[in-house]
Structure formats: structure tokens, C-alpha cells
Simulated assay, not measured.
Amino acid sequence: MRRDYGRGKSNSGRIGWWLMATVLILSILVFGWLVFEKGRSKWGENRFYITAVVEDEWIRVVGVNSMMKRAVEVVIPGEVMVPLVGTQGELKVKSLWRFGESEGRPEEMVRRSLESWMGVKIDAVWRGDAAFEWSRVWSGMAESKWDSFSTVKAWNELRDDQRESLRIPSRLTSMKVTPDGQTEVSVDKGGLWAWMEGLWASPAILAESLSFEVINASGEPGMARLVEQMIKSAGGVVVLVDTAEVEDGLCWYESGGESESVSIDWLERQMGCGERTGNRVGGDVRVVIGKEWAERYR
């Protein structure tokens, strides 16, 4: 029987070349994806990436700045009452996730309610005390997976002295016991906003020192104040808060040449604002809030 050993060797060689080519192509694709993701968040390393970690008896809102190598978390006890977005009522912090599950949107319910109550934009909502393990990198509500990757990497590399854990000051809280024996803790919202201001401010936004005007065209009282607090929490300076005739849409901004700034990038990525030409009065950037914004947070 005649055997063609050369042909087998040739086939093995072709398979080897195919494997090498496949690995090379995959490597190029992964590298390109990482570059693209990092480009989508050009300011991501110079800010606090804020994650709400939902546990059984409390929620930890954790801000991690990978460039500064610093993390600050605020631990919210489960008995604290927060406004429930989409309703006229309040709910205990520890019940937010379960209520959201009943509505089919637990992450969104937690995020919107905490954003409205704390006056900060939250990047991701993760469930469980293992939220900062590598297996959870892709979960939550992060727009850019590079940010999520950087956050987990930074968190795991931080020393204990680089992590700060805070609780809401007792002077801002009041406790009562309901007729059925339940404990409820209320927090002064104005005091909370003042206490948290600057806690997770972006060094890049602080360095730009742009001034903002916030115009409420949503028809819902209080929406401009919420946006004002979110901007201030991120490191911006608000010089004017006003109202205007009701307009449709989420939000938009008008600026005079600051389109490449990190502050504008934050408005687009975190707030969802689009650019619109118009006449500004006073500040570097005017932010207008429309009806859709109120529908998200009232």
C-alpha cells in the first residue's frame, strides 16, 4: 500500500497557517475594539466612575477614579426612604431592586431613583456583593465597556488607604416607627446635595471651569434644579437656572466652540444631550431640559 506522507504534512501546514491567520485577525479585532472603546470615553480615566452596588440590606454607591487611584463610596442603609421614580410615593432603599424586578427593569428603577434623590449621574447598577469581580465587568448599564473594565481593574488594585467609605451624616437624617412597627429613615434632600457636592467631581471638568446655564423647558417644577445638582456634582459651575416654554425632547445644549471639551463630552454621554445652535446668555454652555427628561425622573 502506498502512503503519501507529503500530502499529510502539507495539510498540517495549511491548518497551522489558518490557525495563525485566525489568531492574528482576532488579535487585530480585539485591539481595534479596545482602542475604539477607549476613544469613546476619552475622559473616562480622569473622573469618578460611579456604580450603585445593590446588596440585600443596603446600597453602596461607589465612585472610582482610576487615574487618581482613589475610591469613595457612600453606604445607604436599607431603611432610608427614597422617592420612587415613576410614582408619587417613596420606598425603602433595600426594596428598590425587588420593586424594579416586578416592573421588569430593576437596574433602571434603582439608577433613576438614586440619581433623582442624590443629584448625581450613575454609570452602572450591579447586583450583589461580588459586583467588582472580573466576571461582572460586562454587567450593569455602562455605555463604554472600557470604563467598566478600568473601574474593576482600579478597584482591585487599590489599597485600603485609597478607599474611603462614608455614611450620610446623622444630622441630615430623622427616624420614625410606623404603626406596623417598621423603621423608616428620612434624609434632608437639600442637606444631602450640599454634603455630596464635589464628592465625585471630575478633575478634568473642574480644570475646564466652564459655566453653565440650565433652562427648564420640561413643564415639571424642580427638573432644572436636579440637572444643576448633577452638573455641580460632576465639577461644573452653574451660573443661571431659569424656566422657558415647554418643549419636546430629552435635553440639548448650546455652546460657543467648546464642542471638544470634556464637559461637553459629559453632557452628551452622561446626560444624553444633543447639540443645538442658539443664542446663549451669560454662561459658556446653555443646557435646556425638555419634556422627556421630566418623564424619566418625576
Rank of each mutant, 00 (worst) to 15 (best):
K92Y: 12
S95T: 13
W97S: 01
R98P: 03
F99E: 06
G100W: 00
E101N: 01
E101D: 08
G104M: 02
G104S: 04
R105E: 15
P106I: 10
M109Q: 10
V110R: 02
L114F: 06
S116K: 14
G119M: 07
G119T: 07
D123G: 12
V125G: 00
R127M: 02
G128Q: 10
A130P: 03
A130K: 15
A131G: 06
F132L: 07
W134A: 00
W134V: 03
W138H: 12
S139K: 08
G140V: 05
G140N: 12
G140H: 02
M141G: 15
A142S: 07
D147Q: 06
S150V: 07
T151V: 09
K153C: 05
A154F: 00
A154C: 08
W155L: 00
E157T: 14
L158A: 09
L158C: 06
R159C: 11
D161Q: 04
D161V: 05
D161S: 01
Q162A: 02
Q162F: 07
Q162H: 04
Q162I: 02
E164V: 10
E164C: 02
S165T: 07
S165D: 06
L166N: 04
R167S: 09
I168Q: 00
I168L: 13
P169N: 12
S170Q: 14
S170C: 05
S174H: 13
S174C: 07
M175P: 09
P179E: 09
D180G: 03
Q182E: 09
Q182G: 02
Q182T: 13
E184D: 09
V185Q: 12
V187M: 12
K189R: 15
K189E: 15
